[in-house]
Every structure is written in C-alpha cells, then in structure tokens.
Amino acid sequence: MSDKGAGNHSDVTDFTLVGFRVRPELHILLFLVFLLVYGMVLLGNISMMAIIVTDSQLNTPMYFFLSNLSFIDLSYSTVIALQAMVNFLSEKKTVSFVGCAAQLFFFAFFIVTEGFILAAMAYDRFMAICNPLLYSVHMSRRLCSQLVAGSYLCGWLSSILQVSITFSVSFCASRVIDHFYCDSYQIEKISCSNLSVNKMVSLSLAAFIILPTIVVIVVSYMYIVTTVLKIPSVEGRKKAFSTCSSHLGVVSLLYGTVSFVYLTPPSNPELCKVASVFYILVTPMLNPLIYSLRNKDVKQALGKVLWKKKSLD
C-alpha cells in the first residue's frame, strides 16, 4: 500500500479515543470516579508541596526530591485526566493531532522524569543509611539541584524522541485509538508504516534511560538492606527500614503497574486500561498518603499546620 493510499501523518487532523468499552450511561459514572480521584490527587499533592515549602524542618534533600515527585505526579495526572473527563461527556470523543502529540509529549516527559527522581531518592536513602557521617556533605543543595535538573533533562530528551518517532509514521484509514489517552503503543497499532525503527528506538530508550533508574534503585537498596541487617539492635533496624518503606511503596506501585501494562502480553485491552488508571491516577493519589502516614516528620508538619489553622479560627 502506498503512502497516498494509506494516508500520511500530515493528513491527520484528529483521532478518536475509544476510552472504556462500556454502556454510554456508565460514562457519567466514569466521569465522577475520575473527578473524585483527580480531586484527591490535587488535594494530596498540593498539600504535600505546601507543607514541604512552609516547614523549615523539611528543608532536607529527601523532601526536596519529594516536593518534585508531588509536582510530577500532579502534572502527568492532569495531562491525562482532564482530556479523559472531557471525552466521557462528549459524543465525538476526539482529540486533535496536535493535542494528541502534546499529551504524549508531556506524559512521557513527566513519567520518565519521575523514574529518575525515584532513582535520586533511592541514592539519597543509600547515602543517609550507608554513609551517615558524609551525608550532609555529599548530598549538598548543589548536587540535589543537579540531580533534579538532570532528571527533567532526561525526561525532556526521552519525550522528544518518543513523540518524534511515534508521529513520523503514516496512518491507515482508521483514526481510532483504543485507549482513553494518546498512548504511543496504541497509536502505532493504527499505523501502516514499518515500525522496526520505532521498536528499536523504544528499546534504546528503555536500555539507556529507563533501565539505569531501575539499576540505581535496586543496587541502592541492596546496599541499604546489607547495612541495616548489620545493625545490632532491633529498634535500630526498624528505624532504618522505616525511612525507606515509603519510597519502596511508591516505587513498587509505579513500576508494578507500568510493567503490567507495557511488559505483559496485551491479552485483555480493557484490563490494560484499568491498570493504566492505577499509575495515572491511583498512584499519584496514594503517594502523598504513603509519605504522610508513614513519615513522622510529615505528620508533625501537618499537625502544626492544622494546629495553627485551629488557633486562627
């Protein structure tokens, strides 16, 4: 089939997002569920950022990374949730070519950046537990800023490559994306082009950008576990592990759901959509809860804020 017969990406003006294959009357229910969860994402992450900024006791590397994590969670949830909620209430359920490309760009940007931020947080915990005497010297404000800036840079480079390769293809007659957002895998499924280059670029991104973050996290925690097990007292081991449990919970939620969607055979597309909701909305909603409920410093800071508000009232 020629490009003329298949249609080129330059001829595409919009796509149709199928969303969830449910009865039309259930779209209102889906809208309300997304609205509720997204509202909790907003409340939790904005509150976390506000507490960290206003409390001087939280002016440490760990909370600097955590504030960036909250900003990223809020950002990529917003990029996906708003479009999804609009489509739930719309009959056409379309998104423009430019809008689709922008959504994929920002989603890829923030999700890859989050992986690097989580790796930086793992390295921070490694330094705090395995080299406590050098921690304050090594984890300087300058290094933390460089790690965060590098995370955003890697996310930006990755998203540029992802969007460029995804939308460089020719499309078939169908403009229907079987998802509730512009997912690169589903976009490639409606392409008539040879996707060997796309697959090579995706594997390269995974090998040179995604894989290193996983390696840093795994190696950091191998050293952390080895160090903690050498602590003689049970109370000391418990205290050391408690400083890492929140981060481990966040890492497990994100990488677990993303791996399920992208690394398992797509036998049930609807199940993959549900799993996508977990890392797009549920994980960003739970992250502030995980850190606030399992972190004494955050609970104390929140308590001070609530006490101050009560005193003013």
Rank of each mutant, 00 (worst) to 15 (best):
M1D: 07
M1Y: 06
M1W: 06
S2Q: 00
G7S: 12
S10E: 13
S10I: 10
V12T: 06
T16F: 09
V18H: 03
P24F: 13
E25H: 07
L30N: 13
F31T: 02
L32H: 00
L32K: 04
V33I: 15
V37D: 02
M40S: 07
L42N: 11
G44C: 08
S47C: 13
N59E: 05
T60A: 00
L66P: 02
N68I: 10
F71C: 09
F71H: 09
I72E: 08
S75K: 11
T78K: 01
A81E: 04
A81F: 06
L82Y: 14
A84L: 09
V86A: 09
E91R: 14
G99P: 02
A101I: 03
F105Y: 15
F107N: 09
T113K: 03
T113C: 12
E114A: 03
E114L: 12
E114H: 11
A122L: 02
R125E: 14
M127T: 10
A128L: 05
C130Y: 00
C130L: 02
C130Q: 00
P132I: 10
L133N: 15
S140C: 01
R141F: 02
Q146T: 11
V148Y: 10
G150A: 12
G150R: 13
S151L: 09
Y152L: 11
G155V: 07
L157I: 00
I165C: 04
C172Y: 13
V176K: 08
V176P: 08
I177K: 04
D178T: 02
F180W: 15
C182L: 02
I187F: 10
E188H: 15
S191M: 05
C192M: 01
S193G: 01
N198H: 06
N198P: 01
M200H: 06
V201T: 06
V201H: 02
V201C: 03
A206F: 07
A207F: 03
A207M: 12
A207V: 02
F208K: 10
T213E: 10
V215N: 06
V219I: 06
S220W: 05
M222K: 04
M222L: 13
I224H: 01
K230Q: 15
G236M: 10
K238E: 07
F241G: 04
F241D: 10
S242T: 13
H247T: 08
L248Y: 06
V251I: 11
S252H: 08
L253Q: 11
L253S: 12
T257M: 14
V258E: 05
S259L: 15
L263R: 09
N268L: 13
K273W: 00
A275Q: 02
Y279Q: 03
L281S: 07
T283D: 01
M285S: 07
P288W: 00
L289H: 00
I290H: 03
I290G: 04
L293M: 03
N295V: 10
D297T: 02
K299D: 00
Q300H: 14
G303M: 06
D313H: 12
